[in-house]
Protein backbone atom coordinates (compact mmCIF):
# COMPACT_ATOMS: atom_id res chain seq x y z
CA UNK A 1 0.00 0.00 0.00
CA UNK A 2 1.42 3.37 -0.95
CA UNK A 3 0.31 6.95 -0.61
CA UNK A 4 0.71 9.74 -3.10
CA UNK A 5 0.05 13.44 -2.97
CA UNK A 6 -1.36 15.19 -6.02
CA UNK A 7 -0.69 18.89 -5.80
CA UNK A 8 -2.17 20.99 -8.63
CA UNK A 9 -0.63 24.44 -8.99
CA UNK A 10 -4.04 26.09 -8.77
CA UNK A 11 -7.05 25.72 -6.48
CA UNK A 12 -9.61 23.62 -8.29
CA UNK A 13 -13.16 24.39 -9.29
CA UNK A 14 -15.80 21.92 -8.17
CA UNK A 15 -16.16 20.76 -11.76
CA UNK A 16 -12.48 19.84 -12.10
CA UNK A 17 -12.50 18.16 -8.69
CA UNK A 18 -15.48 16.08 -9.79
CA UNK A 19 -13.74 15.05 -13.01
CA UNK A 20 -10.53 14.18 -11.18
CA UNK A 21 -12.28 12.09 -8.53
CA UNK A 22 -14.35 10.22 -11.10
CA UNK A 23 -11.30 9.39 -13.15
CA UNK A 24 -9.23 8.47 -10.11
CA UNK A 25 -11.91 6.15 -8.77
CA UNK A 26 -12.08 4.40 -12.13
CA UNK A 27 -8.58 3.06 -11.50
CA UNK A 28 -8.29 -0.34 -9.86
CA UNK A 29 -5.58 0.45 -7.34
CA UNK A 30 -7.17 3.60 -5.83
CA UNK A 31 -8.45 2.77 -2.37
CA UNK A 32 -9.24 6.12 -0.87
CA UNK A 33 -8.84 9.79 -1.61
CA UNK A 34 -8.56 12.56 0.93
CA UNK A 35 -9.41 16.00 -0.37
CA UNK A 36 -7.49 18.78 1.28
CA UNK A 37 -8.19 22.41 0.62
CA UNK A 38 -9.41 25.76 1.77
CA UNK A 39 -12.72 25.66 3.63
CA UNK A 40 -15.58 27.56 2.06
CA UNK A 41 -17.89 28.86 4.79
CA UNK A 42 -21.67 28.74 4.40
CA UNK A 43 -22.19 32.04 6.17
CA UNK A 44 -19.87 34.93 6.88
CA UNK A 45 -18.41 34.31 10.31
CA UNK A 46 -16.67 37.59 11.02
CA UNK A 47 -17.13 41.30 10.49
CA UNK A 48 -20.10 43.59 9.97
CA UNK A 49 -21.78 41.19 7.53
CA UNK A 50 -21.62 38.27 10.01
CA UNK A 51 -24.37 35.73 9.37
CA UNK A 52 -24.96 36.68 5.73
CA UNK A 53 -24.93 33.63 3.42
CA UNK A 54 -21.79 33.38 1.27
CA UNK A 55 -23.24 31.35 -1.63
CA UNK A 56 -19.82 30.43 -2.90
CA UNK A 57 -20.25 28.99 -6.41
CA UNK A 58 -17.64 26.29 -5.76
CA UNK A 59 -19.29 24.96 -2.62
CA UNK A 60 -21.71 22.50 -4.10
CA UNK A 61 -22.67 18.90 -4.47
CA UNK A 62 -20.62 16.87 -6.90
CA UNK A 63 -21.28 13.41 -8.16
CA UNK A 64 -18.60 10.75 -7.79
CA UNK A 65 -19.59 7.47 -9.41
CA UNK A 66 -23.22 8.08 -8.60
CA UNK A 67 -22.63 9.10 -4.98
CA UNK A 68 -23.45 12.71 -4.15
CA UNK A 69 -20.58 14.37 -2.27
CA UNK A 70 -21.02 17.79 -0.74
CA UNK A 71 -17.84 19.70 -1.38
CA UNK A 72 -17.11 22.07 1.52
CA UNK A 73 -13.57 22.98 0.50
CA UNK A 74 -11.84 24.35 -2.56
CA UNK A 75 -9.63 21.42 -3.38
CA UNK A 76 -5.91 22.15 -3.29
CA UNK A 77 -4.37 18.71 -2.90
CA UNK A 78 -5.36 15.07 -2.85
CA UNK A 79 -3.84 12.34 -0.72
CA UNK A 80 -4.51 9.09 -2.49
CA UNK A 81 -3.97 5.64 -1.00
CA UNK A 82 -3.06 3.10 -3.67
CA UNK A 83 -2.80 -0.65 -3.43
CA UNK A 84 0.51 -0.61 -5.31
CA UNK A 85 2.44 1.60 -7.72
CA UNK A 86 1.30 -0.11 -10.93
CA UNK A 87 -1.08 2.69 -11.96
CA UNK A 88 1.03 5.73 -11.16
CA UNK A 89 1.40 6.49 -14.86
CA UNK A 90 -2.34 6.59 -15.26
CA UNK A 91 -2.67 9.09 -12.43
CA UNK A 92 0.03 11.15 -14.09
CA UNK A 93 -1.98 11.08 -17.33
CA UNK A 94 -5.15 12.20 -15.57
CA UNK A 95 -3.27 15.08 -13.99
CA UNK A 96 -1.74 16.06 -17.31
CA UNK A 97 -5.12 16.29 -18.97
CA UNK A 98 -6.91 18.06 -16.12
CA UNK A 99 -4.28 20.44 -14.76
CA UNK A 100 -2.75 22.34 -17.69
CA UNK A 101 -1.27 24.91 -15.25
CA UNK A 102 1.00 22.27 -13.70
CA UNK A 103 1.01 19.88 -10.77
CA UNK A 104 3.33 17.87 -8.54
CA UNK A 105 2.99 14.23 -7.64
CA UNK A 106 4.85 12.95 -4.62
CA UNK A 107 5.05 9.42 -3.28
CA UNK A 108 5.30 9.33 0.50
CA UNK A 109 3.39 9.01 3.71
CA UNK A 110 0.84 11.72 4.37
CA UNK A 111 -1.63 10.29 6.87
CA UNK A 112 -1.32 8.35 10.08
CA UNK A 113 -1.87 4.61 10.04
CA UNK A 114 -2.24 3.99 13.74
CA UNK A 115 -4.87 5.26 16.14
CA UNK A 116 -3.45 8.00 18.34
CA UNK A 117 -4.14 9.10 21.90
CA UNK A 118 -6.58 11.71 20.58
CA UNK A 119 -8.53 8.99 18.80
CA UNK A 120 -8.77 6.94 21.97
CA UNK A 121 -9.93 10.01 23.90
CA UNK A 122 -12.43 10.99 21.26
CA UNK A 123 -13.92 7.61 20.36
CA UNK A 124 -12.99 5.34 23.27
CA UNK A 125 -10.90 2.19 23.22
CA UNK A 126 -13.74 -0.10 22.26
CA UNK A 127 -14.75 1.86 19.22
CA UNK A 128 -11.20 2.38 18.01
CA UNK A 129 -10.50 -1.34 18.21
CA UNK A 130 -13.72 -2.12 16.42
CA UNK A 131 -13.54 0.37 13.60
CA UNK A 132 -12.45 -0.23 10.04
CA UNK A 133 -8.69 0.35 9.90
CA UNK A 134 -8.96 2.21 6.58
CA UNK A 135 -10.81 4.97 8.42
CA UNK A 136 -7.73 5.88 10.48
CA UNK A 137 -6.24 9.17 9.43
CA UNK A 138 -9.08 9.82 7.06
CA UNK A 139 -10.55 12.90 8.65
CA UNK A 140 -9.61 15.89 10.64
CA UNK A 141 -10.06 15.15 14.37
CA UNK A 142 -12.62 17.91 14.65
CA UNK A 143 -14.80 16.92 11.70
CA UNK A 144 -17.87 14.74 11.89
CA UNK A 145 -17.99 11.39 10.14
CA UNK A 146 -21.35 12.01 8.53
CA UNK A 147 -20.38 15.26 6.86
CA UNK A 148 -16.82 14.39 5.97
CA UNK A 149 -16.66 10.78 4.81
CA UNK A 150 -18.37 9.34 1.78
CA UNK A 151 -18.16 5.70 0.82
CA UNK A 152 -18.10 5.09 -2.88
CA UNK A 153 -18.83 1.46 -3.76
CA UNK A 154 -16.58 -0.05 -6.41
CA UNK A 155 -16.62 -3.67 -7.65
CA UNK A 156 -18.32 -4.88 -4.48
CA UNK A 157 -15.53 -3.30 -2.44
CA UNK A 158 -15.94 -0.10 -0.53
CA UNK A 159 -14.01 3.04 -1.21
CA UNK A 160 -13.63 5.99 1.04
CA UNK A 161 -13.60 9.54 0.03
CA UNK A 162 -13.08 12.18 2.56
CA UNK A 163 -13.20 15.91 2.62
CA UNK A 164 -10.97 17.60 5.08
Amino acid sequence: MIEIEVFPHRYLKAKTTEKFLNEAYSLNTVERVIIHGEPLPKTIYYGPARGTPVNHPERKEINVHGVPVELTVMAGRFWITLKDDSELDKIEEICKSLFPYGYNIKVGKFTKNKATVSDYIKYGEKLVNMMDKTMIGLTDPRSKYKSSVKIIPKDKKEENNCKN
Partner: peptide, 9 residues
Protein backbone atom coordinates in the same frame (compact mmCIF):
# COMPACT_ATOMS: atom_id res chain seq x y z
CA UNK B 1 -7.31 35.09 3.87
CA UNK B 2 -5.82 34.24 0.48
CA UNK B 3 -2.70 36.31 -0.20
CA UNK B 4 -0.29 33.42 0.29
CA UNK B 5 -2.38 30.74 -1.40
CA UNK B 6 -2.21 29.40 -4.89
CA UNK B 7 -4.51 31.17 -7.34
CA UNK B 8 -7.72 29.54 -8.47
CA UNK B 9 -8.20 28.08 -11.94
Amino acid sequence: HGHSLRLDE
